[in-house]
Design a protein around this nucleic acid. Sequence first.
DNA 1: GTAACGATGTATCGGGCCGATACATCGGGG
DNA 2: CCCCGATGTATCGGCCCGATACATCGTTAC
Lengths: 218, 218
Amino acid sequence: MLDLAILGLLHESPMHGYELRKQLSTKLGAIRAAISYGSLYPTLRRLQTAGWITEAGETPADDADVPPLTSRRGRVVYKITAEGKERFQDLLAQVGPEAYEDAAFGVHFAFFSRIDVDIRLRILEGRRRKVEERREGFREVLQRAAERLDAYTLELQRHGLDAADREVRWLEELIANERSGRTPPPRGAEGELRPPSPRATDSTPPLTARPGPDDSAE
Amino acid sequence: MLDLAILGLLHESPMHGYELRKQLSTKLGAIRAAISYGSLYPTLRRLQTAGWITEAGETPADDADVPPLTSRRGRVVYKITAEGKERFQDLLAQVGPEAYEDAAFGVHFAFFSRIDVDIRLRILEGRRRKVEERREGFREVLQRAAERLDAYTLELQRHGLDAADREVRWLEELIANERSGRTPPPRGAEGELRPPSPRATDSTPPLTARPGPDDSAE
DNA sequence: GTAACGATGTATCGGGCCGATACATCGGGG
DNA sequence: CCCCGATGTATCGGCCCGATACATCGTTAC
């Protein structure tokens, strides 16, 4: 999961750890908080011994006047290998149930432009199915067990229901767009910062438009 | 984090592991997927050795004719101790930065009815602040780095921005409600899914455009 | 009758990932 | 001059997950 993300970034350009972490944070910011060094460095070593990446020793200029006072630990630049690129494609095209989990889906999505439309559709539909199940779970709890639950717990369920419902609709849009042939998502470079989302609550009878965040993460 | 959730559930009634897991899944379903046994049982043992919970052996059958072929492993019912209840209150009232993280916030929220209004407000405001920061992060990326990013990555950012914005508004409502004195969240339990109640969604005045990220009403 | 299956139930193991921490360099501001 | 924040690499303890194993019970299917 981290493997995929790291290989994906190094596929674009060589980088050292610190930079890698920063880019991961922005690229996957909507998915996971900020990957820890306690994960990053061990993963880098793992990828390295597996042969997917190598150190591209960024020799600090030719000025060998580096004061040998301390070991002068220079920054280590990693680059992806040919095998690594293959591995990346393999991981990316993996459409097993793991790819529909919150985090894994996000990582796959972040590199969508590197896979075929049909695989994209497979993943989007699998994810949609999963979120739909989640949504139905919330609905059942709200219908069947409403009176047995705490008021705050209920509010949490509504929150979750609304978030799931929104994600399903988001996925529907993306799926429709993929099918239409336009490769990149819609909503070009217009003014973002759009006011309250104009996507009004359509039908969905008992939904009661509630605010609902909590995309994934955790 | 699991500690808090488990203590909270056992505070309501004694339970065995399997049941605990089920209840956790529904109660925290909007927060985390479904806690694993690989977390649950070790945690139970930890809580037990710490003295927060005890085994309430549920041995219903005194008939010692239990075939010693296998150890006849009966189900183990756990109950909370007095110290456990204290510990629960301590954990619940913890308003440090950890309590604003996704998962931790959700667990706290799920047991909101057990803490004072002022602590509830402190947690809600802390959470709001955190999500606002998150939201601003997305906005900056979308404004400043839009052209340097992949179309799918951008869509992910918009998704995240929208979700964060929604959560902020959700929190605003909850905060306003807490301040108004009505203890439980709005949206009374029964009017929800049963009848096709045409109750229009309250209109949430004009807090959309410029959400001041700094209105610490402390 | 019994075999298969799914729900209930307890438990462990390897591994991924996080938070805290340590160490080291460098530029700038008080 | 010293502290601070950004840049940078790295480890350690610990939480938590997914996979797996084992055992019982009721129902359904052959």
